[in-house]
Design a protein around this nucleic acid. Structure first.
Lengths: 274, 274
DNA sequence: GTATTTTTGGAATATTTATTCCATTTTGTT
DNA sequence: AACAAAATGGAATAAATATTCCAAAAATAC
């Protein structure tokens, strides 16, 4: 990038900073682009980092980052940092208060919604950390690890979880089949002796999933349930049950905890199989 | 204050810091008390200020503030600042190290895995909270809210997100179509003038998704991109780009932040449509 | 393939910022 | 009031950090 492209005025707000960043993104050479990338993804760190830290993070030498700041219109890193230090508000320590504020004041704006769902996700993860049942998980892992093939079923709200599990199993070369109900085709005959079923459903429970679990159970196949209550209908048909509760916001639930648990399960099964 | 009151160990957490501060408040002489008062009232500025700044704010010479830090048990101002910088970006510097340790030492027991994925999810959510670009999100919401129909495409790792979006849109009566690539059928002709495309992909980017975005873009339809880098291939074909970075553990990523963002987007679009 | 321009990395330098030290002032005690 | 102990401010120094500069490497144009 030749010198004559350099702008003299520094961005005055974070907003302006972002705009300028996206505007010039395409014209930047490799290293400077790395800077742009990393900085865009970590604006929050600018206020509390040194050039060296940032440069390391971006995988470039400090001088490259320096150049990057100058191309954006700052005299140097310090000036850029100043912008972010002034805008700095330590986000997190007091969740309860934050949630309160969000709910009362800025309702409805997309940004407020993001705040809400982040908070819901956080709480869900915390609750998972405290409550999950290690024994049940281990049992589920060994069941699935010794199955010839893992069948996965989960519909509606549970479908994203089921499909992610299928993806991870595939990546780890675990034979798995996702029963997605496309075309209302019923593939339950695909469950052969030696296979296992991993069934996922949450209240309000999806009938198809429960029916499939019951069917497998009656045929003597091991069924692992991933659900929200030990007393739910799915648990009755399962040989091992893992529960996870998700904090909801409004009518909708994030899936943070559920997915964290699901992926752990999948990875554990994958490595148990070697 | 005579030397023998000095404690050798530094506070390890912000809470401990506060405790120690209030505990000794009464025993402090004038200048040091000024420091204590000012620091207590401006803890949030510690991370982004210099000794000189803080000293001026408290109305004392730098050396007084220095002494104050030492009385609290820190070796100096820098050490105190470090505490607050790390509290702001929780666990950042040593996350890579921790991962290393876990991989080599820890068994990879299912329970340990759950812990790790919870942690990864938590970090992702915090990073989202601090870094997400409000303007871009608002723009995306208005684009999608004014579309006749929302087309959603996301494959492989992004598929769970896409399918969850489809679920939420359906729940909110937003006309939406999920392009899932079943049977390798290509439904791009389903995109009609007035529609919009919501494309989701993360590195390594899925070609089909990018191709579809480009196609829509060339035909003049608005494309909202949900991806991991502003500089990624998807961003080029998009009219607005929302980025989210997910902390990964091992080869696998949780989707906590991505889903939190996606659901916020969907709910915002849903309510914007009334 | 050669010449020209752009980009890059790292070492050298400048600047800022933290820290120490000690002479001086203040406070408390008899 | 005289002494001792504690507290203070500021100047001197040390350390960390930012910034510049230039030779070498890539990329581009001819």
């Amino acid at each position: 990038m030749p010198d004559d492209h350099i702008i003299e005025t520094a961005p005055a707000t974070v907003e302006e900073f972002r705009e300028r960043l996206t505007a010039m993104l395409d014209t930047l050479p490799k290293r400077l682009r790395q800077c742009a990338d990393y900085v865009a993804a970590n604006t929050d760190r600018i206020a509390v980092s040194t050039v060296a830290d940032m440069a390391t993070g971006a995988g470039v030498p400090p001088s490259a980052l320096m150049r990057f700041c100058q191309i954006l219109g700052f005299t140097g890193f310090s000036e850029m940092q100043k912008l972010f230090r002034e805008a700095y508000v330590p986000g997190w320590p007091d969740y309860a208060t934050r949630l309160q504020n969000l709910k009362s004041s800025a309702t409805g704006s997309p940004a407020a919604l993001v705040g809400e769902f982040i908070e819901a996700g956080r709480l869900s993860l915390e609750s998972l950390a405290k409550n999950f049942d290690e024994t049940a998980l281990n049992q589920a892992v060994s069941t699935l690890a010794s199955a010839k093939m893992v069948h996965i079923v989960g519909l509606r709200r549970a479908f994203p979880v089921a499909s992610y599990l299928a993806y991870v199993f595939e990546k780890m070369s675990v034979p798995a089949m996702l029963h997605d109900g496309v075309g209302k085709l019923d593939h339950r005959h695909a469950l052969r002796p030696g296979d296992a079923l991993l069934a996922i459903t949450f209240a309000p429970y999806s009938e198809e999933t429960i029916a499939m679990a019951q069917d497998a159970h009656e045929r003597g196949l091991p069924v692992v349930a991933l659900t929200d209550r030990l007393t739910g209908p799915l648990a009755r048909a399962a040989s091992s049950t893992i529960t996870v509760t998700e904090v909801d916001f409004g009518a909708f639930r994030s899936l943070s905890a559920t997915i964290a648990l699901a992926i752990s399960l999948a990875v554990a099964v994958g490595s148990a199989r070697g």
